[in-house]
Design a protein around this nucleic acid. Structure first.
Lengths: 182, 182
DNA sequence: TCGCACATGTAACGTGTTACATGATTAG
DNA sequence: CTAATCATGTAACACGTTACATGTGCGA
């Protein structure tokens, strides 16, 4: 799943500028698919325009830089939807957290405990984000996707809470008067 | 999480060749962290050796190409464990499946249903893999990681089964005598 | 007045993949 | 006889990130 596809997906729901697309991809509902930077979005949009899959119009604003507002063309819509008919690529999941966990036995118990706590906090923050995203679900499939995400994340949280003790027991006991990190 | 780190992690548990490291990263227990190709592993190993974090010895075999067996040095171990003390990078999850789902309302119900079925089958295959991996857990942290993975994947499977109807209802009704894909 | 939000874009760089080059043995 | 497994490595390429360049207005 490349930046190109994400641009088309976002524009499918309505026009947007490169600046807005990046925001959506980093903070918004699309942040669960990709994290794109300006350096990839602007060239992708330019290429898409050259291929006539999107068109742009410039809007001048007083006091702010001019905007270049993109929207999909009919052939852009067709191309995007057609791409969804093709065989899906596999999901990919990369986790530094799990690599850390795997080596818990080589690390001090206080560090393992601290990282486990951090992780639960991160999950709680994500859950709060999901709640906010769930409120304005402009796109019909959004709710399903958000609830799918929530379900997985809650399962992860429960697992951590239920099995944190086992992992800490595996870790190296803290020497002496370890009050340690929090 | 780069190839370099994965090489150190794998070698931490015992010596291996570049060929074996790739296999582990694609098929084995490390496939849940990364999918590395020869083109990235061999150069990474060479660089690691230049930095004295690993050493190699060549083993000649009759009938087969010579092997270059790598193992970590003391400073390699230290460097790896020290890197685990640093702030963890965030997990990243990319899913073409979820992008597909988001646009279910633009797609034929038969296609949506077929993809949902495929997905459940894929999850079942993963679950079977987890069972096999669970058998020989040489590393103490492995069991925890595998059970964490299993928990998340089972939650996803349950969600799909419980809410498949809603998604199919959202999709475009199949025209006419649609018996469609399976 | 300092830095942030708005807004677009490019150039250098990093990191990884795909395809190529090479070559023997073994199983179907 | 064909394909796969073992085994290492390089070169071309794709794709993306970081940092830079440029500039205004607004709130702390």
């Amino acid at each position: 799943m490349n930046v190109r596809t994400i641009c088309l997906a976002i524009l499918y729901d309505g026009e947007a500028t490169g600046y807005e697309i990046r925001k959506l991809s980093v903070e918004g509902e699309y942040s669960y698919f990709i994290d794109a930077s300006y350096g990839s979005i602007y060239p992708a949009l330019a290429k898409l325009e050259a291929e006539k899959l999107v068109v742009s119009r410039v809007e001048h604003q007083e006091g702010k830089p001019a905007k270049k507002i993109y929207s999909v063309t009919a052939s852009g819509r067709t191309a995007f939807i057609n791409s969804l008919f093709e065989k899906l690529g596999e999901d990919e999941y990369r986790s530094e957290f799990l690599l850390f966990v795997r080596f818990a036995s080589e690390l001090p118990a206080s560090l393992v405990e601290a990282r486990l706590n951090e992780r639960v906090e991160q999950i709680d923050a994500m859950l709060a984000d999901f709640d906010k995203l769930g409120e304005d679900h402009s796109h019909p499939g959004d709710t399903w996707v958000i609830e799918y995400g929530r379900t997985c994340v809650v399962a992860a949280r429960n697992y951590i809470q239920a099995h944190r003790g086992e992992l800490i027991a595996l870790a190296r006991p803290d020497s002496g008067s370890a009050a340690a990190a929090e």
